[in-house]
Design a protein around this nucleic acid. Structure first.
Lengths: 337, 337
DNA sequence: ATGAAAGCGCTAACAT
DNA sequence: ATGTTAGCGCTTTCAT
């Protein structure tokens, strides 16, 4: 009924418990024939070390904590889904599992604190590094091992490994793509100024426009990340100055881009033919909407891989030099451009 | 540096370690003043029981295993995301965490087996109960505790708690909604016949149509779950018999519905005005596409809640009577109808 | 109501 | 190269 233990294997193989432990953890220490004998007993019994016992002894849990942020309905946020999957996959390769926990209403640090104090996880992957998020700083003070997906925007001397995607490079490529297709009046619909990620992405658009000597006057708009904001902003930009009516839109998110598509549909304009549109994140929405939304895709699989690498070095050598990695996203071109 | 232990608390409170354990697990056993003294020591030290030690002793892990299925790109599958979140949330309330693992390429049971043999999780939540999925049967043979989100379609004498959503009721409501709006030629675009879920959803459409004495001849189509299949199927249905040209489409998924919207866009038809469309799952896509896709929404939060309830009773009383629960989805009406 | 003793299954340190 | 000893932090008897 209960799974076999080290002792069961030892008895069957006619060796001591320690030898079995070595066979599992330090096979090099065993003589070839002993190892084989032990291995056979392990196979026959279907032995696998008891996690709780091993965790207690080694003071590790082989678990990585990840806080799941609430699902935002009404937006096109495909990132988390893909990222979680990539993280689970790469963690497995490294011998870790991912433990999910959720935000506590009143105290955002509660979940982290409890898991830490109960030694339930070895480390965290933090994903929300937006301005004012207290987690990173708090975890650092706590000396808790963690890596972050997202730059430590507000903390230049952060000492934890991080991986982020170069949003500016993404929007720059998107804008260049449109410019290459002959567009000159490429508008920007982004987020409010207090979003560093938003300003980062905006800067890529600016860079591309200015790089071609094009003026951006009257072509930008900063709004909330909702479909209706995108719809209103694009309608406004299209109606503002007839002489500088945008022929293309680059958006800070697929959500905003869907708003633009909405405006076009209302006006009988056809995306990709009459007006070009580019989104950000390559969400499912971008993939299934007609005629396909061109979008900037984040290399989440690579991000997850590098985060786990960072985690491993952090856990094996806590004082190793810290590094941040900036990944370049790619543009997925579809019908809308 | 290391977190405080039971012994630390005991020393500080001037009681034995056992008394501290009781204070945590059986506070009723302590005298009020002792309890308060211990509690104060706990608070001062920030003590939380070491998970590994507790797990070893109690032979539980307070962990629920959930296999994350691969993200299907190019489809509108919003279900998993919301479900995982709901599960994490309700699990927390019940004192459990969710451990994620991923599918092994060659052996789909590997992940389950390893976690079971290493006693890393207390139970599983199984989500893919489609035809031919060996997990449920395998877990049952293994006497592993699990609950499933999805009926045991192919196993009438399954003995595990399950929760599922009444797909037929959903499509029936969707179809009735269209009939109430004056449509009579309501077409169905669903999945291939070997999908029980697909046939279930299809039966709801049939029931609604026949309930109003309407013929379904030439109005149905069974295809793969891709956008292009939905596009092709709807185009075909619109072109087939002019006398029975559909004025509305009910689809087995939002993915298929997006294909229908694609066909409409190509032909200059306006969803909701010229042709009505209803999808299934209330994905993000349905929420952000213009002019909004009416869709059947699954009560995932309730499903997660009931699954955790089932899990608790399963783990506390393994021989308690098994129950299955069928939940009724709701229709979210948007511009497309 | 509180305490003492034992042991869950494993591995690190040491001995052989 | 293999075995012995000890103990990780906790909870479950059982005794007081």
């Amino acid at each position: 009924m209960t799974p076999p233990t080290l002792a069961d294997v030892a008895e069957r193989a006619g060796v001591s418990r320690q030898t079995v432990s070595n066979a599992v953890n330090n096979p090099d220490l065993l003589r070839a024939d002993t190892l084989e004998r032990v291995q056979q007993a392990i196979d026959e019994l279907g032995y696998l070390p008891n996690r709780a016992a091993r965790n207690l002894r080694t003071r590790t849990s082989q678990l990585i904590g990840l806080r799941l942020s609430p699902v935002l309905e009404g937006t096109a946020t495909a990132v988390m889904d893909r990222f979680v999957h990539a993280l689970v996959w790469t963690s497995k390769e490294a011998g870790y599992h991912v433990l999910l926990f959720s935000q506590d209403e009143e105290d955002p640090l509660q979940g982290y604190d409890d898991l830490l104090r109960s030694t339930a996880v070895d480390a965290f992957v933090v994903t929300d590094t937006y301005l004012g998020n207290p987690q990173a700083a708090w975890l650092r003070r706590r000396r808790a091992p963690f890596v972050s997906f997202g730059r430590p925007w507000d903390d230049p001397d952060a000492k934890h490994p991080w991986v982020d995607v170069d949003g500016a490079a993404g929007t720059e490529e998107a804008t260049r793509h449109l410019l290459d297709r002959g567009h000159e009046l490429v508008a920007w619909i982004g987020w409010r100024k207090d979003s560093w990620i938003g300003e980062d992405r905006r800067s890529g658009w600016l860079r591309a426009m200015h790089g071609r000597g094009l003026s951006t006057t009257g072509l930008a708009s900063r709004v909330e990340d909702t479909v209706s904001s995108g719809r209103d902003a694009s309608a406004h930009l299209l109606d503002a100055d007839p002489a500088r009516r945008p022929t293309a839109f680059v958006c800070a998110s697929d959500t905003l881009a869907m708003g633009v598509l909405g405006t076009l549909a209302t006006r009988g304009l056809y995306p990709g033919r009459d007006i070009a549109v580019v989104g950000f994140d390559d969400s499912q929405v971008a993939q299934v909407v007609h005629p396909g939304l061109t979008s900037v895709r984040q290399p989440l699989e690579e991000a997850a891989r590098l985060l786990v690498v960072g985690l491993e070095s952090l856990l094996s050598a806590p004082l190793s030099p810290v590094e941040g990695r900036l990944l370049t996203p790619s543009l997925v071109v579809r019908g809308s451009s």
